[in-house]
Structures are given as C-alpha cells and as structure tokens.
C-alpha cells in the first residue's frame, strides 16, 4: 500500500507542478488544485499508514491511527477550497480586464501574429 500511495502522491504533484508552470491561467489553477490534492494526501500519510486502526484509543487496541493528520488535512482541505475559489475568480477577472488569459498579461501569440500581419501589409504597400 505504501508504494501505491507514494506513487499516487508523486504523480499528482508532478502533474500539478507541470501545469502550474504553464503560461495560461486555467492550467495554472488546475495545476494548483492538483498540487493541493497531492499535499493533502501527503499530509494524510504523515502519521504513518495504518489499516483498520481506530482513531480514538479504545483501551485494548495498540494499533491505532494517528488522529492528528486527519484533523490537519481537514483544515488544509477547507483552506485549499477557499484559495482555489479565489484563484478562479481572480483568473476570470484578469481575463476580463486584460483581454487575454495569460499569466503575465501579454498575449505573445497574438502579438506575433499582429507583427506578421503588419509586415505583410507593409510589403504590399511597397
């Protein structure tokens, strides 16, 4: 189970990291979401993985699950939700105000196309 858990967390964070580094806001938001999933899974496992362990000591059982990570991960999930919601609204607002959805606010592809068009027009005028 440990290796499955580790591989899942690793793949999630790798995908999240890749998407976060993209140039447009939508993949970035999705990337941050994936990253927060990976982090939540990681937090969940930080007390060690146990199966069928009770979260509260019931007197007889020695093999208990660590309850603290569960409490922490709950907090982290709630905060993550709030942050994601905010990031989405911000991305939409940026799209509206800047006229494009690039993280740095410049649409390089459109800019290149415009310069090319200008050059063609100049050629024709000549």
């Amino acid at each position: 189970m440990e290796s499955l858990f580790a591989i899942t967390t690793g793949i999630l964070s790798a995908c999240g990291l890749y998407l976060t580094l993209r140039g447009r806001t939508f993949p970035v938001v999705v990337g941050l979401t994936l990253l927060s999933y990976a982090v939540n899974l990681f937090l969940f496992s930080m007390g060690g993985l146990t199966t069928d362990g009770p979260a509260v000591i019931n007197g007889s059982n020695n093999e208990m699950a660590d309850p603290l990570p569960q409490a922490l991960v709950l907090t982290a999930i709630v905060i993550g939700f709030a942050m994601t919601a905010f990031a989405i609204i911000l991305a939409m607002r940026a799209r509206g105000d800047m006229g494009n959805d690039h993280v740095d606010g410049h649409d390089h592809a459109k800019h290149d196309a415009d310069t090319r068009k200008d050059n063609v027009l100049k050629e024709r005028q000549r």
């Binding site: 976060t20 806001t25 970035v28 941050l32 905010f86 990031a87 911000l90 991305a91 607002r93 940026a94 105000d97 800047m98 993280v103 740095d104 606010g105």
Partner: peptide, 9 residues
C-alpha cells in the same frame, strides 16, 4: 490584477 495573479499563484 496582473501583479495579484503572480502574487496569488
């Protein structure tokens, strides 16, 4: 807005 996008991400 633009600087906020960077800051938030």
């Amino acid at each position: 807005i633009q600087s906020a996008v960077h800051y938030v991400v």
